[in-house]
Design a protein around this nucleic acid. Structure first.
Length: 994
RNA sequence: GCCGAAGUGGCGGAAUGGCAGACGCGCUGGACUCAAAAUCCAGUGUCCUCACGGACGUGUGGGUUCAAGUCCCACCUUCGGCACCA
């Protein structure tokens, strides 16, 4: 009984493709190239998630389609296999991470192969393979060997770095130190997340709300010598080149925000006597507000803090500094609802007006951004405003807001009502006789009105002018104004617009040697080392003296010493000190070279390292002479389409682009951007869940159900809004609820609203769909088809097992369209005949070819599948099914459901041996897309009233005539005056009447 | 708070400014069957009507247009990202 049985046909075709190397990609094909890439997975112990095949299926469909269109398609897969979970497992069980990793890769590979993706498996890579990370280490050394020439705007070899004569004069060590200070890879003391309870340093992603993810222990910041990559040097190009790539707008925007470019000025404030000759340099994006700077703030870690602090304030300043240093970033931000800070006792001189202003320190100023110091302009900066109010510092307005802003302010409202005479007890006339305790007028309103009245006549009763006066005199009434306006209280600059002011004052500052324009970025240099075992070792040696102390000199391994592999360790337990586990490998650690003693770098590279360049290695995965043959790079780059999850929107993509640009500058890759076009697949959520809330008896609320609108619910914990009592969650079945209005309610009691939503899949929630089970039950073709049929690729969408069943039924229907299920062996139905299709069928077929072709090109797979369903439904109704039509249909289906398509293709072609993977893609005949007659809707005043059938080539006049001739339309137009008739040929007729 | 995306039947979703709801799920009825499953056929936005037919309908309010789910303005909600970046 040859019924549709994916369990038999899928493994068979997978074996066929593998044995025949059907999808092996030649490097020397004359066909046009396409490089279509999936973000490679981290092979976790949990196995493949249904989210993975979403993007993989999309690209696979496109690849299969493009091959049939005559392209030479490169479509590889590999493993991003360094990372924490394998190491955690090693700590717990003693199993070497390489073993765990290998097992996980086996599982992932089996699962991915079971889905029938057309990868060229000969190009498979693994970031933990020494033959791979040899080149990761090599690239690191290239970064180490590169400095950024700001004049030329590109990275250059360190030997080309010009050495200033005064450095040269100080000897070799000075030269080396100078070079080291310019390298793209450099060492610096930076704070890390040290967890004393776990005795280890944690990655940022292991720290949640200032505590360790495992065990919930406190995490403190501790300075540690780390490798850093100077990505900030590339900030400008990373930003600018976003213009050249076809990425989703949102992702570009996220990268722009992350880079965070802002243009402003650095301004030098001299210290007021007696503090000394030093100046404090601040960064501001609003040099136009310089006249409003009423105090300076230094970050607590600013190097000049100790120097400026006066003896009388030293104790409080030191205490504040210590407090700020031990606080985690989390505490500094989240807990700092109110601003804190202390006065240093010192004063600075405002360079534009000579005003003496106090210098404070406060942790709302970050040491790591700009110069670590700011000029505070409380009238025009929210944070400064808040701080100034708290510490009663002066607020001077220097930007006059536009009229509309003033009128919409609280003061504007009061002045308006005063002008309109809406305050009977307090009209313009009697406001001059103080009556401060009128019941309907607040103290504040009274103050405003009195002040307004005082300037009323002077301003000619003009409310705008009154408000402008009040703003100048009482800015604190108006609050903070941060937008652009007109300069006031700014001496010679008064009356200038914000933009003009900025230009002029920056020029003035430069002229007087007190400042210069400056661009700053939020982007920080990339912390590139981890205190971990399971990562790439750095190919770096630190020279040590006789006592074992580092001399500060660094040597690098040469290419023939690479790869530097990880030492075997007996235990993977953290050292208990902030020292990486590699420091335990004593034999591995020490190296003697040319009579000098060295210790190896014990940090390892972060997981990003391997994924930063993997797309290059696919092009030449087995090369042991170079990371890739330049000819192959030239042939295949850039990547035509890159598909993956939006969780990599910022870091992975930014880091890869950075490495790529460095390699480009050093002449190793031929193009400045790696990923020409990027598409993010949307997340797949679990099945829809319905939740009711029940009070817990004995609590603050009596037992019973609570309607959802009275509940604060985050998906895990529900709290009664009024009583703050915790509520119990009750999972409901779909048929216990119904829709009422725009919400779901309980069928039994429609007054009880129910929460309905789909959640992110997670082990703890128990809503994870395992692809193995889906394939076991319905087959890979159904899984692939369903993942594409769910909705647009980019959209977030909930899983539905019934939906899988729906596409499975479709594949069964396709099968039965041609296969005689009642026969003993595989054979075609008698209905399948070598006849010419009728016109309707032919037209539908060509319509479907066009639709599927266009939709694949647009990655709109869901609608392509709908179109094929419609064709299948049509053919099901036909008693005679032309073989030619079925053959075309199977080719259309093949990128989506390749196994069943191959099987049916065989039968349709008389069991001829071979694959359809390189059959030419069906083409359509334009002339068959149009039918002879058209159904054209006829509207009266925009409302559909009739449909008329006309010849396809019906012109405007004939169409209008046909519409008006329609009996129904005639009846409805009876006695009406026709004012206008809109005729859109082949589309519609709209009759406009009175 | 800031930036971005999205709101259409019971559900997933479809619609170059031109017949809203294609296709699928679910549901209802029918055929087949001793029966069930599977399959096939028909129906299925809401309300009014025996029916013919009609009214309403794409988060809310306004606007542009002969015509708006689609364009413009304001707002609401949900999701994602960032968050003292001067």
């Amino acid at each position: 009984m040859p019924t549709y049985n994916p369990k038999v046909i899928e493994p068979r075709w997978q074996r066929y493709w593998e044995e025949h190397k059907t999808f092996k990609t030649p490097d020397d094909s004359p066909k046009p190239k396409l490089y279509i890439l999936d973000m490679f997975p981290y092979p976790s112990g949990a196995g493949l998630h249904v989210g993975h095949p979403e993007g993989y299926t999309a690209t696979d469909i496109l690849c299969r389609y493009k091959r049939m269109r005559g392209y030479n398609v490169l479509h590889p897969m590999g493993w991003d296999a360094f990372g924490l979970p394998a190491e955690q497992y090693a700590i717990q069980t003693g199993t070497h991470p390489a073993v765990t990793t290998q097992q996980n890769i086996e599982t992932f590979r089996r699962q991915i192969k079971m889905l029938g993706f057309s990868y060229d498996w000969d190009r498979e890579i693994n970031t933990t393979d020494p033959a791979y990370f040899k080149w990761t280490q090599w690239i690191f050394l290239e970064l180490y060997d590169t400095w950024y020439d700001k004049e030329q705007g590109r990275g250059r070899p360190i030997r080309e770095l010009p050495i200033p004569p005064e450095i040269q004069a100080q000897g070799n060590d000075a030269v080396r130190a100078y070079q080291d200070s310019k390298r793209l890879a450099y060492m610096a003391e930076v704070p890390v997340n040290w967890c004393p309870a776990l005795g280890t340093v944690l990655a940022n992603e292991e720290v949640i709300d200032g505590r360790s993810e495992r065990g919930n222990h406190p995490v403190v910041r501790m300075p540690l010598k780390q490798w850093m990559l100077r990505i900030t040097d590339y900030a400008e190009r990373l930003l600018a080149d976003l213009e050249t790539v076809q990425w989703p707008h949102a992702i570009k925007e996220m990268q722009r925000n992350w880079i965070g470019r802002s243009v402003g000025a650095e301004v030098d404030f001299a210290l007021a006597p007696p503090a000394g000759p030093a100046t404090i340099r601040v960064f501001t994006t609003r040099p136009d507000t310089l006249f409003g700077a009423t105090y300076l703030v230094l970050a607590p870690e600013h190097p000049l803090v100790d120097a400026v602090t006066t003896p009388a304030h030293r104790a409080t300043v030191t205490a504040y500094k210590n407090q700020a240093a031990t606080k985690s970033d989390f505490e500094r931000t989240e807990l700092a609802k109110t601003k804190t800070g202390v006065f240093t006792g010192a004063y600075a001189v405002n360079p534009v007006n000579g005003a003496k202003i106090p210098i404070w320190i406060a942790d709302y100023v970050l040491g790591s951004y700009g110069t670590g110091a700011i000029m505070a302009v409380p009238a025009h900066d929210e944070r400064d405003f808040e701080f100034a109010r708290q510490f009663r510092l002066p607020i001077v307005p220097v930007v006059l807001p536009p009229e509309t802003w003033l009128k919409h302010s609280r003061v504007g409202g009061i002045v308006a009502s005063l002008a309109a005479g809406d305050v009977p007890q307090l009209s313009r006339e009697n406001v001059s006789h103080p009556q401060p305790h009128l019941p309907t007028v607040s103290q504040f309103e009274y103050k405003v009105m009195t002040a307004a009245h005082r300037v009323w006549d002077e301003c000619g009763g003009d409310t705008t002018r009154i408000l402008q006066r009040l703003y100048g005199d009482h800015v604190e009434w108006f609050g903070c104004f941060v937008d652009e306006g007109t300069a006031i209280n700014s001496g010679p600059f008064d009356g200038l617009s914000t933009a003009e002011f900025k230009t002029k004052v920056t020029a003035w500052l430069a002229e007087h040697g007190k400042g210069a324009s400056k661009v700053n970025y939020k982007l920080r240099d990339w912390l590139f080392s981890r205190q971990r075992y399971w990562g790439e070792p750095f190919p770096i040696l630190h020279e040590v003296d006789a006592t074992g102390k580092r001399t500060g000199n660094i040597a690098v391994l040469s290419l023939d010493e690479l790869p530097l592999t990880l030492p075997e360790l007996e235990d993977y337990q953290p050292t208990g000190k902030p020292e990486p586990p590699l420091s335990k490998a004593k034999d591995w650690l020490t190296v003697v070279r040319d009579g000098k003693r060295y210790v190896r770098e014990t940090n390892t590279m972060p997981q990003w390292a391997g994924s930063c360049w993997y797309y290059l290695r696919y092009l030449d995965p087995k090369n042991d002479q170079a990371f890739c043959d330049p000819a192959k790079l030239k042939k295949w780059l850039p990547i035509d389409l890159y598909v993956g999850g939006a969780e990599h929107a910022v870091l992975h993509l930014l880091y890869s682009r950075f490495w790529h640009k460095v390699l480009y500058d050093r002449g190793h890759v031929p193009c400045p951007e790696p990923f020409l076009r990027l598409v993010n697949q949307g997340m797949i959520l679990g099945e829809m869940e319905y939740t009711a809330f029940q009070k817990i008896s004995g609590g603050a609320v009596p037992p019973g159900l609570v309607s959802a609108e009275q509940v604060d619910f985050d998906g895990d914990v529900a709290v009664h809004k009024k009583t703050a009592a915790k509520l119990m969650l009750i999972k409901l079945d779909e048929d216990q609820v119904e829709k009422k209005g725009d919400a779901f309610v309980l069928k039994e009691d429609p007054s009880i609203r129910v929460d309905a939503r789909a959640y992110k899949m997670s082990k703890s929630r128990g809503n994870v769909i395992n692809p193995d089970q889906v394939v076991d039950q319905y087959g890979a073709d159904s899984l692939r088809l369903y993942e594409m049929f769910m909705g647009p690729l980019e959209a977030v969408k909930p899983w539905s097992m019934r939906g899988v069943e729906g596409v499975f039924r479709f594949l069964n229907r396709v099968w039965r369209l041609m296969i005689d299920e009642r026969a003993e062996n595989m054979r075609l139905l008698d209905a399948v005949q070598d006849v010419e299709p009728d016109k309707e069928t032919l037209q539908l077929l060509h319509h479907t070819i066009k639709k599927v072709t266009d939709d694949i090109e647009a990655l709109a797979f869901n609608t392509a599948i709908s179109a094929m369903m419609e064709l299948a439904n049509h053919l099901t109704r036909q008693t005679v099914r032309p073989r030619s039509v079925l053959k075309t249909f199977v080719l259309l289906l093949s990128p989506f459901a390749p196994h069943v398509a191959e099987e049916l293709w065989q039968v349709l072609n008389g069991f001829r041996e071979g694959t359809l993977a390189y059959e030419p893609w069906p083409s359509y005949d334009e002339s068959l897309l149009k039918s002879d007659t058209l159904q054209v809707p006829v509207q009266i005043n925009g409302k559909l009233r009739a449909v008329v059938t006309v010849p396809a080539d019906c012109d405007k006049e004939k169409l209008e005539k046909a519409a008006l001739a329609d009996t129904k339309i005639r009846g409805l137009l009876e006695g009406k005056t026709i004012r206008r008739i809109v005729v859109v040929p082949a589309k519609l007729v709209n009759v406009v009447t009175d």
